[in-house]
C-alpha cells in the first residue's frame, strides 16, 4: 500500500453553451509515499485542471471522468463534504500567486487558525502554538510577529512558505503543489524549493509537483509526466526523460531549457563583464 494517489484515465470536459470542450484527455499517473511526481507543461496544457479535478474543486460547468484513487478510495463522485475534509487535512495544497491567495482582511494567524480549527479539535491556545511551530519549521523568524501580520505586509516568498507550512500542518500523505515557484523571486524560489526537498526527504509524504519550469522540476521530481494540450505526451523516470525523451515536444522543451541554461552558466562563468 505504497501508492498514495493513483489517477486512471482522467478526462475533464468543460460545458460551454451546448458543446463539451475537452480540457484533459485520458491522463493516468500515480505517486507513492516519499516520491515526487512532476507534471510539466506550458500554460493551458491542463496541468492545473488535472490538479483541481483531483481535489474536487471544479464547479458544475466541468465534468470529470475516470478514476482518482486516494489511498485506495475513489474520489470522483465522492460527496463534497468528504472531499472537503480531505483537503487541507490528508491532502495539503500549495497554490501559485501567494500574494493573492490569502484573504486581505484577516491576519495570517487568523487564517491559519481557521484552517487548523476546521480539521482538528484543538483549543485556541494550542492552535496558536501549533501555527507558530509550523512557521518555525518553515524557518520563518519571529513567528509570533508574522502571525499578527496581514497578508499585504508579507513578501510573496514568505507567504509561500506560510502556505507550505499550512499544507504540512496535519501531516498529510499527499501534497499537491500547483506552480509554487512561479510567482516569486528567485531567492525566495530557492528557499521554497529547499522546503519541498526537506519534505520529500522525510519520506512520509507523496508530492505532486506541477510546474512549467524544467529547472525546478529536475531538482525534485523522480517521475515526470509531460502534458500538452490536455494530453500526457510522455511519462517516466525523471532521469530518462531529461536525457532521452521519446516525444518530440518534450525534446524541444528540454533543448530550449538547456540552451537557456548553458547561456546562463557561460555568463556566470565568464563574469558580468563578458556577459555585457
Amino acid at each position: 500500500m505504497n501508492t498514495v494517489l493513483d489517477v486512471r484515465n482522467l478526462s475533464v470536459r468543460f460545458r460551454s453553451g451546448g458543446r463539451l470542450l475537452s480540457l484533459v484527455k485520458d491522463v493516468s499517473f500515480s505517486v507513492s509515499r516519499g516520491g515526487c511526481l512532476g507534471i510539466l507543461g506550458e500554460s493551458g496544457s491542463g496541468k492545473s485542471m488535472t490538479c483541481k479535478a483531483v481535489l474536487g474543486l471544479l464547479d458544475d460547468n466541468f465534468q470529470a471522468e475516470g478514476g482518482v484513487f486516494f489511498e485506495g478510495r475513489q474520489l470522483l463522485g465522492e460527496n463534497p463534504e468528504t472531499l472537503r475534509r480531505l483537503r487541507g487535512g490528508r491532502i495539503g495544497v500549495v497554490l501559485q500567486n501567494p500574494m493573492s491567495c490569502f484573504d486581505p482582511l484577516y491576519r495570517i494567524g487568523e487564517q491559519m487558525a481557521e484552517t487548523l480549527g476546521e480539521h482538528t479539535s484543538l483549543g485556541r491556545r494550542r492552535i496558536r502554538e501549533r501555527s507558530a511551530e509550523l512557521l518555525e519549521l518553515m524557518r520563518i523568524r519571529e513567528p509570533g510577529e508574522v502571525l499578527r501580520k496581514y497578508p499585504h505586509q508579507l513578501s510573496g516568498g514568505m507567504l509561500q512558505r506560510v502556505m507550505i507550512g499550512l499544507a504540512l500542518a496535519l501531516r498529510p500523505s499527499l501534497i499537491i503543489a500547483d506552480e509554487p515557484t512561479t510567482a516569486i523571486d528567485s531567492i525566495s524560489r530557492h528557499s521554497v524549493m529547499r522546503e519541498f526537498l526537506r519534505i520529500k526527504r522525510t519520506g512520509e509524504t507523496a508530492i505532486l509537483f506541477i510546474s512549467h519550469d524544467l529547472g525546478v522540476l529536475s531538482c525534485i521530481a523522480d517521475q515526470v509526466l509531460v502534458m500538452r494540450l490536455g494530453e500526457a505526451v510522455e511519462s517516466g523516470p525523471a532521469g530518462r526523460i531529461f536525457d532521452n525523451a521519446r516525444d518530440a515536444y518534450t525534446r524541444r522543451l528540454i533543448r530550449r531549457h538547456k540552451a537557456v541554461m548553458s547561456k546562463f552558466l557561460a555568463a556566470v562563468r565568464q563574469g558580468p563583464e563578458a556577459a555585457a
Binding site: 474543486l57 484573504d103 482582511l105 484577516y106 481557521e114 476546521e118 502556505m163
Partner: peptide, 22 residues
Amino acid sequence: REDYVLYAQARGLKRRAILVRH
C-alpha cells in the same frame, strides 16, 4: 473568482464559512 477563495476551498474550509466570512 479571486485566488483567496480557491485557496480557502483548498484548505478545506466549509462553503458557508467561505461565503460569509470571506
